[in-house]
């Protein structure tokens, strides 16, 4: 079936240019072909077949088809541009994060440093040093290490820095007694040092002298 030929037949049919046999033939075809029937009805309504109109339609179709290749290019460039834009965005975010990190040191890292200091004995903030010689023979019943650990655990908060020198005797129960300041320490530190000694572990020996360093 040649459709160009068909459209000419339709045109001639509507213009009454076909012979009776040809008219019959087309009518017969149309009865079995609803598309043809509707097309004939349409052209009859339009009262003409415009070949110019039909070739314009063909032109539109041809334009639409060539558009596909252009569209593909447009899409290609579109994706490329999007890719560049996305990369630029990611880079910018990275730079911003780096800048921010430089200006704001990681708070977590600071915390870690504090923990390391705490792990070192000096960091407890207090240390007891034995002063030996003369008649001072006292030492903590559990040893200096345990005594320092006790001090670190029980020392009060917000004490000023400084040193306290204490001399004391040890009674029968091993408790320090007659605690006195030998150097004239800050009252606050002295009171704290006495409290720590009074409540602290037992001692061995008869008399003792220690230096407490509050850092």
């Amino acid at each position: 079936m040649n459709n160009n030929y068909l459209i000419i037949r339709i045109q001639r049919y509507l213009n009454g240019e076909l012979s009776r046999e040809e008219m019959y033939e087309l009518e017969r075809e149309a009865l079995d072909d609803p598309l043809l029937q509707d097309a004939i009805d349409g052209y009859r309504l339009q009262q003409r077949v415009s070949h110019r109109q039909l070739s314009l339609l063909q032109q539109r179709l041809a334009d639409r088809i060539t558009q596909q290749t252009k569209e593909r290019h447009a899409f290609y460039f579109g994706w490329q541009r999007l890719g560049v834009a996305a990369t630029a965005c990611v880079l910018m975010v990275l730079v911003l994060v780096l800048l921010w990190m430089r200006n704001h040191p990681d708070p977590q890292r600071g915390e870690k440093e504090v923990q390391v200091e705490l792990a070192v004995p000096q960091a407890v903030g207090i240390q007891a040093l034995p002063i030996t010689g003369m008649a001072f023979d006292a030492e903590p019943a559990q040893g200096w290490k345990a005594f320092n650990a006790y001090l670190a655990e029980h020392m009060g908060n917000e004490l000023p820095k400084g040193e306290v020198l204490l001399a004391f005797t040890i009674d029968e129960q091993g408790r320090p007694a007659a605690i006195r300041d030998t150097e004239g320490a800050v009252a606050e530190l002295l009171a704290e040092a006495k409290r720590l000694l009074d409540n602290g572990p037992t001692w061995k020996g008869n008399t003792g002298k220690i230096k407490l360093i509050f850092r």
Binding site: N2, N4, L35, D38, A39, D41, Q46, L54, L61, I65
Partner: peptide, 24 residues
């Protein structure tokens, strides 16, 4: 689309006629 165009083009006059029947 070239292929589809070749398929559709012969029917365009008929489809146009059909559309005119409905849209006028």
């Amino acid at each position: 689309l070239q292929l589809l165009g070749r398929l559709y083009e012969p029917y365009m006059p008929l489809v146009y006629g059909l559309c005119f029947k409905y849209y006028k």
